[in-house]
Design a binder for these strands. Structure first.
Lengths: 217, 217, 217, 217
DNA sequence: AATGAATGAGCCTTCATTCAT
DNA sequence: CATGAATGAAGGCTCATTCAT
């Protein structure tokens, strides 16, 4: 009798694992289709087909296309945030922390172009409607959380809040621009290595910080 | 007899002028509809109606919706290029030229969000198909033309071609990132003025250039 | 040994009782959903959920949605017939019996709009298919059974069969019309009380019967 | 030049006639499909196919299924009203007018079962939504207009308004009930001629009116 | 050059029903 | 007996594009 409950629970577990697995199959398909066609042009039919399902079956897992996108984005943002926070967690001098956090942000997207696209769809401002608003908030929240370590490091180094925010914004904008050039292949026009470019930009910033701020007497 | 040909030719001219005029009416309508509904959601029917035509009539002027987008983009790029070249045309010291050209680029898009969207659409556009390739080339060509004055200024100031290209790339990436933050409203997250941000970025670059390069003996 | 068969049979009975009980749970749920959404818009999924089952489970009890409707209708007709027969059972003068039976019919539906809808659905139902035919026969049989007491009363009062049938038909038609006006709310157009209307109609009939037929010397 | 405008106008006329003709083809198909499947179960695809069109083509003529039904109903009600008003127009004694109007109403529907069904769909109270409300009002208005001559005749004969309304309601209910029995074939259960039944009912009413009301001294 | 009717493919979604477990 | 995942067909509707006129 004792083992029955465990049997029962493991059956439940197995069932839940099955559901999760199929959910992920569908998400994978959705990711691929969103990537290839864009969020609006992606068709549920194709996602279903790609996942090995008929269209109707999808609705057991996600109530709408938008929800699928939401699930995808949320998961992506969570990983991004994890990556940045992990980089900023180690005890280091502020400027090293800054470097680590900024690089983590940049590299996460440089190395995971799929996540970049996921973010860009929303970033690029689809008509704000329905679920969209929540997702937008989620995106903003995650971005701010990722940038916080950078701003904190700048302030620790001695910058005023105002200056810290300005530099953080610049860093973010630069990342976004570089990632976009890289992702769309435009960077090839200039025969530049995007990671090096980002290092260069960070280097300039650090130079300025070291030169300007008499952090210690 | 002699004047007949001129009559004929002026008739042709008049005819061509009419065509061009109507083409532009249609482009105007398309611009408006693209703006209001976004590029993907814009319907040919509505563009036609807005231009005072029936759907079929459009096809006398543009063979497809994509071609209309292409025409719009081409015209936009032409204006962009004009703006940048005008800024770079005045005889000035290299660093002032650099500043003027970069600002012209940034401001063109900052002040014409519609053109930005037009560009972003292709910029982001992932589907390599049909017309796309030509437009892509056109976009790349125009971008390079716009950035050329900047690179030239940098080299005039004494930078090696390699360094000049790297800095130009950085400037371009930064613009793109800032424009994106601005256009999507994300910049509000940081309560920053995007134009000031760009000036700041340019300022840092100029500082570095002045400090580093013994431009004249 | 002898009691085993009884034990066995009582086990069967218990099992059958269980089945019947669950069948009724399902019918109750169906009734509720039909009421809330209308017969056509009711979905098996919702019926199942309401009954505490999954969709597939329903098919252990009813082979199709139409069969569920059939069961509901049959049960409704049984109640109707019961009501009318009870009213006609008491020993009374023919005209009082007539009045009682007619009122019972009318009131059953006036007070149970759901049953009316159940009946109307088939009554109106035009698609001659499948189950329909049997249900149709069931409906006709039940209606005739309900009207029989009325016709009998008329004949007892002295009318020829032909006249009795004609008056019964008229009474039935009038009921149906009034019930429809009442159920659809159209009666409000005339600010009339439908029950009073029916009493009035019955009154006129009784008047005619009393006046015309020298029932007994 | 003079005939040009006439040519032009006749071209317009021809075009409009074509549109109207095709509109009617579609309405005919819709009528048929509504009749066979009911309003909710009727599919646009089938209507289109029946009319010799692809589904999309229908939308040039009617913006939705509901609108098609609306057009059908409106036209039907107009004919009904015309029939009743024509019958009531002739100068006659009130009771003859009453008879004529009531018969016109009954016969219109008895002879045009399609129109009856059109009315019944709405009459039967589909979920009130969208266009529905307007149609509902239209139906009510038309019904009241049709019954007005009857009520007027009753009052002319000397009945109080209250009694006149009550009798009109009864007449309407009786019609509805009979038409329903007739239309659904239930009348066959009683082997009755519905028109005779209606005449009978009218006869009883007239008898009562003559007996009761000393219309003239 | 312009019309506008028509096509045909596609979209998202819902549902009764089946079936392996 | 019951589950619930999955099917397959259908639903209303939209749209770029074509083509006879």
């Amino acid at each position: 009798m004792a083992h029955m409950s465990s049997e029962y629970s493991s059956s439940l577990q197995r069932k839940q694992a099955g559901i999760d697995h199929r959910r992920n199959l569908i998400l994978d398909a959705a990711r691929a289709v969103f990537r290839e066609h864009g969020l609006e042009a992606a068709s549920l039919r194709e996602i279903a087909k790609r996942a090995g399902y008929t269209p109707g079956a999808i609705y057991s897992y996600y109530p709408s296309k938008e929800d699928m996108y939401g699930a995808l984005l949320a998961e992506s943002l969570q990983r991004l945030q994890g990556a940045v926070e992990a980089a900023a967690a180690k005890p280091r001098l502020p400027l090293r922390k800054l470097h680590a956090a900024a690089m983590a942000f940049y590299q996460f997207y440089a190395e995971h172009p799929q996540d970049l696209e996921l973010g860009f769809y929303l970033f690029n401002g689809l008509k704000p409607q329905g679920l969209n608003k929540n997702l937008n908030t989620a995106l903003n929240t995650a971005l701010l959380a990722c940038l916080q370590p950078i701003q904190t490091a700048l302030q620790s180094h001695g910058l005023s809040e105002k200056k810290a925010v300005a530099e953080t914004t610049a860093l973010f904008a630069h990342s976004v621009g570089l990632l976009m050039l890289q992702h769309t292949g435009r960077i090839r026009l200039f025969a530049q290595n995007p990671a090096q470019q980002f290092e260069m930009h960070l280097g300039h910033l650090l130079d300025r910080l070291v030169a300007t701020t008499p952090s210690t007497p």
